[in-house]
Every structure is written in structure tokens, then in C-alpha cells.
């Protein structure tokens, strides 16, 4: 099951203290930037969960 992003916690990438670290750590291309916001491409997510542990805002999780 792909990860879930809490958009309220995530906010704009320009405001992220990790400067979009989740996008950088995801090598599957399941997290991308669109118009300054984080977008999940669920079919590419491999459930490796690296994004979860790297997100400085705790905005990514496995539960909705």
C-alpha cells in the first residue's frame, strides 16, 4: 500500500526544511514536485518507506 501524505503538515516545498528531501530520497520517482507542491505517484511507490523516515515534517505515513 503506497504511503499517504498529510498535505497540511507537508506544505509548500519551498517551506520544507528538508527542501523536498522525500523527493530526493525516493529513487522510484513516486514523489514528484508539481507547482511547488509534493505529489505522490501511487503506482510507482514500492513501500520502501525511506521517505517516511526522512521527512522533517512527519507528513508522510502509512495510515490515512
Amino acid at each position: 500500500m503506497p504511503v499517504v501524505i498529510d498535505m497540511e503538515k507537508c506544505g509548500k516545498i519551498k517551506d520544507c526544511s528538508g527542501e523536498g528531501l522525500c523527493i530526493k530520497v525516493c529513487e522510484q520517482g513516486a514523489l514528484i514536485e508539481e507547482d511547488g507542491e509534493l505529489v505522490l505517484v501511487p503506482e510507482k511507490c514500492d513501500d520502501c518507506d525511506i521517505c517516511i523516515q526522512s521527512c522533517p515534517n512527519q507528513a508522510i505515513s502509512k495510515k490515512s
Binding site: 528538508g18 528531501l21 530526493k24 530520497v25 525511506i50 523516515q53 526522512s54 522533517p56
Partner: peptide, 11 residues
């Protein structure tokens, strides 16, 4: 700290 991003030199 965030181990993997540090190890990869991302931060």
C-alpha cells in the same frame, strides 16, 4: 539525524 539523507550526501 536523518541517517539515509546524510549518508547519501543529500543534507
Amino acid at each position: 539525524g536523518p541517517l539515509v539523507p546524510i549518508a547519501r550526501g543529500l543534507v
